[in-house]
Simulated scan of single mutants.
Amino acid sequence: MTGIEVAALEVTRDRRRILHGIDARVDAGGWLAVIGPNGAGKSTLLKAVAGLLPYSGDVRVDGVRLRDLPPRKLARTLAYTPQNPVVPQQMSVREYVLLGRTPHLGYLAVPGRRDRAVADGVIERLDLTEFAHREVGRLSGGERQRVVLARALAQQAPVLLLDEPTTALDLGHQQQVLELVDLLRRDDGLTVVTTLHDLGLAAQYAERMLLLVEGGAAAAGTAAEVLTAESIAEHYQAHVEVVAGRDGRPQVHLLRPRPHAPGARGTATAAPGKADAAGPAGVQNAPGTAGARTTDSSEGGPTGSSTDSSTGSSTDSPTGSRTGSPTERARP
């Protein structure tokens, strides 16, 4: 069981400070969701922890400084999946997933029977068996996303860093991927750090949350402590209602502004976070709520953005719909 701790982390690129004073701790077997509006620095944080960006401060796993580890040992300690990975187009899915076993191989060694068994097991669990011999370049965006996750899981590293793991996945596969990650976390003690745009998904799966705003930590704690209507209104400029689900975890509902009376021009723009006819803003019991229903705006953009501020990336996940999110259904 392996925990991870981040202390006073700062990232500066092109003389611009992207992250500053970030402190976070994830106990062994825990799940931390990093959330925040576009450009907050979420992807930058994961890249820094993964050793892909220079940083000041400290990142430790079980008390060992990650910057002191040689690359092979680091790859055995944590696995990282970017939001928009670049994959070899002509490599088969099985060959690509087998690359995750590289840190466990000797120099000039080839994957053995155990390595192939691990890769095949992950491929099966992620519903990729029918694509095992297909070229990665012939896959859809959602299928490719699952293949990238499969490679990371094949590393069998005790710490898993996932940057928007549900990007481009349909509802069923969003749930499948997150349930698998949660199963590995609970059964194998995997420590998970994810960035997620969908606040409802983050609330359902993560034990703790870190809210980033303009490169700094605006809030940290449990989902109920971080996801308040007031906080979402302040940092996302969104008008929402937050209610407690059957399991006590918060559910976030996007509320449309009330229209003017018939014949009036335009629509009213109720102040975010204030109560209106759709219901009071704040955590409360929702009569008849059968499961988490959530919507959220998403942060797009390539993971190569030094400021984590690219926008406009579209996905197959209908996170902007009141009825389209997988979190409308209760978790199994």
Results as ranks from 00 to 15, higher is better:
Leu139Glu: 01
Pro111Ala: 09
Gly121Arg: 08
Leu149Gln: 04
Leu161Lys: 01
Met209Phe: 12
Arg151Asp: 01
Thr195Gln: 06
Glu130Gly: 01
Gln174Ala: 09
Leu180Asn: 04
Ala238Gly: 01
Leu149Val: 15
Ile123His: 03
Leu199Gly: 06
Tyr205Arg: 02
Gly216Lys: 13
Thr129Trp: 12
Ala154Glu: 00
Gly189His: 04
Gly200Phe: 02
His133Phe: 06
Leu128Trp: 04
Gln174Pro: 12
Leu227Ser: 07
Ser231Glu: 13
Leu149Ser: 00
Leu169Ala: 12
Gly172Ser: 11
Asp163Gln: 07
Ala223Asp: 06
Glu164Leu: 11
Leu162Trp: 07
Val243Ser: 12
Glu124Arg: 14
Leu139Gln: 07
Ala223Thr: 10
Arg144Asn: 05
Ala202Met: 11
Ala218Gln: 08
Ala132Glu: 07
Leu128Arg: 07
Val243Ile: 13
Val252Arg: 01
Ala168Tyr: 15
Val181Lys: 02
Gly189Glu: 09
Glu241Ile: 14
Ala154Thr: 02
Asp115Ile: 08
Arg134His: 14
Pro111Tyr: 08
Leu211Thr: 04
Arg116Gly: 03
Pro165Asn: 13
Ala150Lys: 07
Leu190Asn: 06
Glu230Leu: 03
Asp182Pro: 02
Leu126Ala: 07
Gly137Phe: 09
Gly141Asn: 14
Leu190Ile: 10
Asp163Asn: 10
Ala119Ser: 12
Asp170Gly: 08
Arg138Thr: 14
Phe131Arg: 10
Gln204Glu: 15
Val226Cys: 12
Gln251His: 15
Gly221His: 08
Arg249His: 11
Ala150Val: 11
Arg116Val: 06
Met209Ala: 07
Ala168Ile: 00
His173Asp: 05
Arg185Pro: 11
Ser140Gly: 14
Val240Pro: 04
Glu143Asp: 11
Val148Asp: 01
Leu211Trp: 14
Gln156Tyr: 01
Leu227Pro: 02
Val118Trp: 07
Gly137Asp: 12
Val122Phe: 04
Arg146Val: 03
Val118Tyr: 06
Leu153Ile: 06
Val177His: 03
Ala220Ser: 15
Asp198Met: 06
Asp163Cys: 10
Arg146Ser: 05
Leu126Asp: 05
Leu162Tyr: 05
Thr194Ile: 09
Tyr236Trp: 15
Glu214Val: 03
Asp182Arg: 13
Leu184Ala: 03
Leu199Asp: 01
Asp127Ile: 00
Pro165Gly: 10
Val181Ile: 14
Gly142Met: 12
Ser140Met: 08
Ala218Tyr: 11
Leu153Phe: 10
Ala218Cys: 09
Arg134Tyr: 04
Ile232Ser: 01
Leu212Ala: 03
Gly200His: 03
His239Ala: 08
Thr228Tyr: 05
His239Pro: 11
Pro158Met: 04
Arg116Leu: 04
Gly137Cys: 13
Leu184Thr: 00
Leu190Ser: 08
Glu124Ala: 15
Val213Gly: 02
Val118Pro: 02
Ala229Val: 05
Gln145Thr: 08
Val118Cys: 05
Gly142Ile: 13
Ala109Glu: 14
Leu180Ala: 05
Ala168Phe: 15
Arg138Gly: 07
Glu135Met: 13
Tyr236Pro: 07
Gly189Asp: 09
Arg114Gln: 14
Arg151Lys: 13
Gln155Val: 08
Val242Arg: 04
Leu126Glu: 07
Gly142Ser: 13
Val226Lys: 10
Val148His: 00
Ala244Phe: 06
Gly200Gln: 02
Glu241Asn: 12
Glu164Ile: 08
Ala223Arg: 09
